[in-house]
Each structure stands twice: as structure tokens, then as C-alpha cells.
Simulated assay, not measured.
Amino acid sequence: MGFNDRGGNSRGGNRGGSGGFRGGGSGGFRPSGPREMHKATCSDCKQETEVPFVPSGDRPVYCRECYQKHRPARY
């Protein structure tokens, strides 16, 4: 009987540890300092804007307002 009790406790502990690892792992890649911003021209309204990546020229770049219109729907 004692063996089964220890096995049950061990499995319960593993589940809790695994859930904690998954939850904490996703936010660790964000830089803590200010982002380097790059100037770009919005593909829709043609106003100058700043984006946190270097525009490559082969994809459209949108300002904050126009991006909301083109943003993919979340499920």
C-alpha cells in the first residue's frame, strides 16, 4: 500500500511542475529595455511611422491605426 501512495504523490507533483514550466516559459524572451524603432511609411495612409523591426520592403508596413484594420482575427 505504501508504494502506491508514493507513486500517486509523485505523479501529482510532476503534473504541477510541468504546468508551471509551460506557463513561465513563454514570457522570458522579451527584452527588458526600450525597443529600437525604425522609420517606415505606412502602406495604407502613407504617413511616416516607427516600427520595432527593420522593414525589408517585400511586405507592407502599417502604422498603429491601419494595423488594427489589417490585424488577423483572434480565435
Rank of each mutant, 00 (worst) to 15 (best):
G2L: 08
F3I: 13
N4T: 13
N4F: 10
D5E: 10
D5W: 11
R6I: 14
G7W: 07
G7K: 13
S10F: 14
S10A: 15
R11P: 01
G12T: 14
G12A: 15
G13H: 09
N14I: 02
R15F: 10
G17I: 08
G20A: 04
G20T: 06
F21N: 14
G24F: 11
G25M: 14
R30S: 09
R30W: 08
S32P: 12
P34T: 11
R35A: 04
M37P: 01
H38V: 04
H38T: 03
K39Q: 10
K39E: 11
A40P: 00
A40H: 01
T41C: 12
C42T: 00
S43M: 07
S43E: 06
S43Q: 11
S43N: 13
S43L: 04
D44I: 09
C45V: 06
C45A: 07
K46L: 04
K46W: 03
Q47S: 10
E48Q: 11
E50W: 07
E50L: 05
P52T: 10
V54Y: 08
S56F: 09
D58L: 01
R59M: 11
R64E: 12
R64P: 06
E65N: 02
C66A: 06
Y67S: 06
Y67A: 05
Q68F: 04
Q68W: 06
Q68V: 05
K69R: 12
K69A: 08
H70N: 00
R71P: 09
R71Y: 09
R71M: 12
P72L: 03
P72D: 05
A73R: 13
Y75G: 14
Y75N: 11
Y75D: 12
